[in-house]
C-alpha cells in the first residue's frame, strides 16, 4: 500500500544541513496499523509529512496505492490527498467553524452537494461519538472531543490511509486510550491503513501491528510489534520497550524480596502472544501442588496478544517444583529462573 525507497530529506539551515530523514525504506501493508516511534527530533514528523507531500523528499520515492507521489501534477496530488487524511497533535480545527462545519470542510473542498454533506456529517458524528455536539465550536470542547472532530474530519472523504502525527500526545492517558480505541475501531470497520507516529511505546503496544524505531533520521529497527518487544536489538528500542514492561523499580524489588525470603524458586515469566498470565498460574497451583506468590509483573494486551513479564515465587517439594518447571517450559512463555534456593 505504502512504499518508501531510500527516502531522504535534508533541510538547509543557517547552521548547515540537517538530515531530518536519512535513507528510509518502508513497506506498509493495506489495512495495518503501522507505528513509527522515536524521540523528539528523530525526524518522525518530517517522514509522515513526506507521505502526503506536505514536505517534498530531497531524494527517494514514495509510492502510495501504486501512485508515485512526487511525480503527481498539483491537481492529481490534491486528488490523492483526499484519499490520504491526516490528524494532528494540536487538532488543527478551524475555530471559526462549528463541529459540523469542521467535519464538512473536506467535503466542501471535494465539492460534494449540500444534501450529501449533511448526511455524511451525520454519519461521521455518530461514528466518532459526538452526538449532540454538532453545533459547538472547538473552543467549547475538551481535547479528546477535539481529536474526535479531527478524526471525523479526516474520515469524511472515505480515505484509504490515515496519517496520525502524535495524535494523542496532547491528551491525558485516559483520553489517549479512548482515542486509540477509536482508531482501532475505524481500522477494523473501514479497513483503513493507519500510519502513526509517537514517542510513547504505550501507543505502539496498544494498537500497532508493526513498528519502526527512528533515531536521527534513520529507521534503526523494524518489525512486528511482538517480535520487537521480544528481541529488541538496538539500545533505543530496549529503552522504549522498558517504558511499557518493567517498572523502574522491578529489579530492586526482586532483589530485596530474595534477600528476605530466599525460599523456593523465583522465576521470571515473559509472555509474548499466546497464553495470558492468569489461567497459567491457576493451572500451575491446581495441578502441580506448589504454592505460587506473584511478586510483580505487568501484562498488557497488544494487537497480537498479551505481552509482559511476571515475577513469581514457587514453593513446594523438589519433585513438585521440577514438574512445575517442566510444565512452564512446555507452554508458550519464556521462563527464566532468577533464584533457586
Amino acid at each position: 500500500m505504502i512504499n518508501l525507497q531510500a527516502v531522504r530529506k535534508v533541510f538547509q539551515t543557517k547552521d548547515g544541513e540537517v538530515k531530518a530523514v536519512d535513507t528510509v525504506d518502508l513497506n506498509i501493508k493495506q489495512g495495518e496499523i503501522y507505528g513509527i516511534i522515536g524521540y523528539s527530533g528523530a525526524g518522525k514528523s518530517t517522514l509522515i509529512r513526506i507521505l502526503n507531500m506536505l514536505e517534498r523528499p530531497t531524494s527517494g520515492t514514495v509510492t502510495i496505492g501504486g501512485k508515485n507521489m512526487s511525480e503527481l501534477s498539483s491537481k492529481k496530488l490534491r486528488e490523492a490527498r483526499q484519499e490520504i487524511s491526516m490528524i494532528f497533535q494540536h487538532f488543527n480545527l478551524l475555530w471559526s467553524r462549528t463541529v459540523r462545519e469542521n467535519i464538512a470542510f473536506p467535503l466542501e473542498i471535494a465539492g460534494y452537494p449540500k444534501a450529501k454533506i449533511k448526511q455524511r456529517v451525520d454519519e461521521l458524528i455518530d461514528l466518532v461519538g459526538l452526538e449532540g455536539r454538532g453545533g459547538s465550536y472547538p473552543s467549547q470542547l475538551s481535547g479528546g472531543q477535539k481529536q474526535r472532530v479531527g478524526i471525523a474530519r479526516a474520515l469524511a472523504n472515505e480515505p484509504k490511509v490515515l496519517l496520525c502525527d502524535e495524535a494523542t500526545s496532547a491528551l491525558d492517558p485516559k483520553t489517549t486510550d479512548s482515542i486509540l480505541d477509536l482508531l482501532v475501531e475505524i481500522n477494523q470497520k473501514l479497513d483503513l491503513t493507519i500510519v502513526l507516529i509517537t514517542h510513547e511505546m504505550h501507543v505502539i503496544r496498544k494498537i500497532c501491528h508493526r513498528v519502526a524505531v527512528m533515531e536521527q533520521g534513520r529507521v534503526v529497527e523494524e518489525g512486528d510489534v511482538l517480535n520487537v518487544f521480544k528481541n529488541p536489538t538496538e539500545p533505543i528500542t530496549k529503552d522504549f520497550v522498558k517504558q511499557v514492561t518493567e517498572p523502574e523499580e522491578t529489579v530492586d524489588t526482586i532483589k530485596q524480596f530474595i534477600s528476605e525470603f530466599p525460599e523456593g524458586r523465583i522465576v521470571q515469566l515473559t509472555f509474548i502472544g499466546g497464553r495470558a498470565g492468569q489461567p497459567l498460574i491457576t493451572e500451575l497451583i491446581r495441578k502441580y501442588e506448589v504454592d505460587v506468590n506473584i511478586l510483580q509483573g505487568k501484562i498488557t494486551q497488544t494487537q497480537n496478544g498479551p505481552y509482559g513479564t511476571l515475577f513469581i515465587q514457587i514453593k513446594g517439594t523438589e519433585s513438585a517444583l521440577a514438574r512445575a518447571m517442566e510444565f512452564l517450559n512446555s507452554v508458550q512463555v519464556e521462563v527464566e529462573v532468577i533464584h533457586n534456593a
Partner: peptide, 14 residues
C-alpha cells in the same frame, strides 16, 4: 495557526 493551513492542504484544498 499554520497547522490549520497545513490541515487544509492535507485535505487537497486549492
Amino acid at each position: 495557526n499554520k497547522g490549520v493551513i497545513e490541515a487544509a492542504k492535507s485535505m487537497g484544498a486549492t
